[in-house]
């Protein structure tokens, strides 16, 4: 008889499959681990640009973790989903017992696993450079990273599900570069006011400032969590409305 595997094992199978794909893809590793690691080392070992108040290595590690989220949850997911949509992968998986819901769940778990790997690698590098986070701040930072990932995944799906694959590739990389300067690595408070004020309302600025706040002085980033939640709710609603499964 043809019966499905239990829902949990279907989602975990999809997550394991996608995690292996993500971690065995050279370009993906470059963007998700190597570039954030280079940014961390460069910021921690130099004195420009100004990163604002706090220990420089704490600020650099927070920036690198934020960049890791943008790389994996936004750029990586947008490109992968855009091309899977074009090649019919989303349609095919929709006809298997996994289904559309299972595909989204599996993908989300894979993003969290890759994020975990990034936190360990970048945290290890940060520690080697002198980063010593407090337990409370670290816990708040992890919550923030998960919220930020959800927010960026919803925006990635919105992009990947509405424009053609080549445009997704171009836009996802362009957005990565632009956001880099809008609060990911450098606090929005340090940016010129005309840039910093809007940047604090973008998911990049909100996530970056929140992670920096938690890791530098263990503060609860209520305002930034609010900004990220609004983007997440808007992104999810737009995905539900406009995402197209076929390319």
């Amino acid at each position: 008889m043809s019966l499905p595997a239990p829902p949990r094992s279907r989602v975990l199978a999809q997550a394991a499959f996608e995690t292996r794909l993500l971690l065995s893809n050279g370009e993906q590793l470059l963007v998700s681990v190597v570039l954030p690691a280079l940014a961390l080392a460069a910021l921690a070992l130099t004195s420009v640009p100004d990163l604002g108040a706090g220990r420089r290595v704490d600020l650099a590690t927070a920036g690198a973790l934020t960049l890791a989220v943008v790389s994996t949850a936004f750029t990586g997911q947008a490109i992968a989903t855009g091309f899977d949509r074009r090649s019919g992968v989303l349609r095919l998986l929709g006809t298997t017992p996994l289904g559309r819901g299972g595909l989204l769940a599996g993908r989300s778990v894979a993003v969290l696993v890759v994020l975990g790997v990034q936190v360990v690698v970048l945290g290890g590098l940060g520690a080697a450079l002198g980063w010593r986070p407090g337990a409370a701040g670290l816990a708040l930072a992890l919550v923030t990273l998960v919220l930020g990932s959800a927010c960026f995944v919803s925006l990635a799906l919105l992009l990947a599900g509405t424009v053609r694959a080549e445009a997704v590739l171009a836009l996802a990389n362009l957005v990565w570069v632009v956001l880099l300067g809008l609060g990911v690595l450098v606090p929005t408070a340090v940016l010129p006011e005309a840039v910093g004020t809007p940047a604090a309302l973008l998911p990049s600025g909100a996530l970056g400032d929140a992670v920096r706040g938690t890791l530098v002085d263990g503060s609860w980033p209520w305002r930034e969590w609010g900004v990220l939640s609004v983007w997440l709710a808007g992104g999810a609603a737009a995905v539900a409305r406009w995402f197209r499964w076929e390319g």
Partner: peptide, 11 residues
């Protein structure tokens, strides 16, 4: 299901 465009992940 076998789709006309295959639906296979390329990598």
């Amino acid at each position: 299901v076998m789709l006309q465009d295959g639906g296979l992940p390329t990598t």
